[in-house]
Simulated scan of single mutants.
Amino acid sequence: MKPGKSLEKDVQRIYSFLLNMRDEGVTVGNSVFIVGKSGLQHEVDVYYEFARAGVRHRVAIECKDWAGGISKGQVLEFESKLRDIGNITGVIVSRNGYQSGADKYAKFHEILPLVFDDLPSFNNLLAERLKTVALPGDDYIGEPFWIIMEIRNGKVTGSHYANKDPISGKDLIPLTYSKYHAERLFRDAGLDPTRWAVRGLPRFALRAFLITLELYEKKMNGGALICFLPPGSKPDAQFIGIHASREDLTNEYFGEPIPSIEDVKK
């Protein structure tokens, strides 16, 4: 792999993953060639675009995997490329920072200067993405599951309620097929309604949950537990709980492949 290509691939994978958390269908390209207003062809290390409310958004990302910091002249070169392309947002990702004044110069020209090692961890990036596009609201219907989530100032935080399994010792996140059953679990657990709330998981939110469940299974000794009661059960009947792996939930309830976080982080 050519020098710098590793950084480009890392940036491409992360942006592709985060931009498509809700199946937006955003394509993130590597080494994309764009013809500018001058008629000249420019190569962009990482490029993506999408449309919202009839507005086309285009982003060009310059990746610099060099031993030293980026100079003001190199920022100027990128700014000139962006100006020729037109109507595009610029981002620079540097492995080893910027020389004096280079980052200030980039900001002046509305180019976002980032340092790869200073980026939030992948887990934090994932959490921020979930907050903006994938966390269920109080009016969402489960497809097919309902879940208990932490709330703060009336909004879900992305954390899920879990119970420790006395046999395996794992923290298991309960999933139910009905809001009624989720509310009963909520009451049985004596949860504080100012800190927790029942939420339905529509398809896009189920996808996001399954992505985070991979981290939960691999890093936090956790998992998911499907809880249900047969129809007509007595009010004091005990829930039946069945452990459900991310793989099984993906195959049997989501029905389509979901990218692995490990693939993105390679």
Rank of each mutant, 00 (worst) to 15 (best):
M1V: 15
P3K: 14
G4S: 14
K5F: 14
L7R: 03
K9I: 08
R13G: 00
I14M: 06
S16W: 04
S16G: 12
F17Y: 13
N20D: 05
R22Y: 03
D23E: 15
E24P: 02
E24A: 15
V28D: 09
I34E: 10
V35Y: 01
L40N: 14
Q41W: 00
H42V: 04
D45L: 03
V46I: 10
Y48Q: 00
E49M: 12
E49A: 14
E49L: 08
A51R: 13
H57R: 05
V59D: 02
A60N: 08
C63I: 11
A67V: 08
G68Y: 07
I70P: 01
S71P: 12
K72C: 05
G73M: 04
L76A: 07
E77F: 03
I85V: 14
I85M: 07
I85G: 02
G90Y: 10
I92S: 06
I92Q: 02
R95S: 08
R95P: 01
G97S: 10
Y98K: 04
Q99K: 14
D103W: 05
D103H: 05
K104T: 12
K104W: 13
Y105M: 13
A106F: 10
A106W: 11
F108C: 01
E110I: 05
F116K: 15
D118S: 09
P120T: 06
P120D: 12
P120C: 04
N123C: 06
L125Q: 10
R129S: 13
R129K: 02
R129N: 03
L130N: 07
L130I: 10
K131N: 01
T132Q: 15
V133W: 11
A134L: 04
P136N: 06
P136K: 09
D138F: 01
I141P: 01
F145G: 05
M149L: 10
E150N: 03
E150S: 06
I151T: 04
R152M: 10
N153W: 09
N153L: 14
K155G: 00
V156A: 15
V156F: 04
V156N: 05
S159H: 07
Y161R: 07
A162S: 14
K164Q: 11
P166F: 12
I167V: 15
G169M: 13
D171C: 09
P174W: 12
T176W: 11
A182E: 09
A182L: 06
E183Q: 14
E183Y: 05
L185F: 01
F186M: 00
R187M: 09
P193H: 07
T194L: 10
R195Q: 15
A197T: 15
V198H: 09
R199P: 05
R203M: 07
F204Q: 13
L206K: 10
L206D: 13
L206P: 04
A208F: 03
F209P: 06
L210S: 02
I211G: 03
L215Q: 11
E217A: 08
K218P: 02
K218N: 12
L225Q: 07
I226T: 06
I226G: 00
F228L: 08
P230F: 11
G232N: 06
S233D: 05
S233R: 01
A237H: 14
I240V: 08
A244S: 07
S245R: 12
L249E: 03
T250M: 11
E252G: 00
E252W: 01
Y253K: 02
F254I: 07
G255K: 13
I261G: 00
E262C: 03
V264S: 09
K265Y: 05
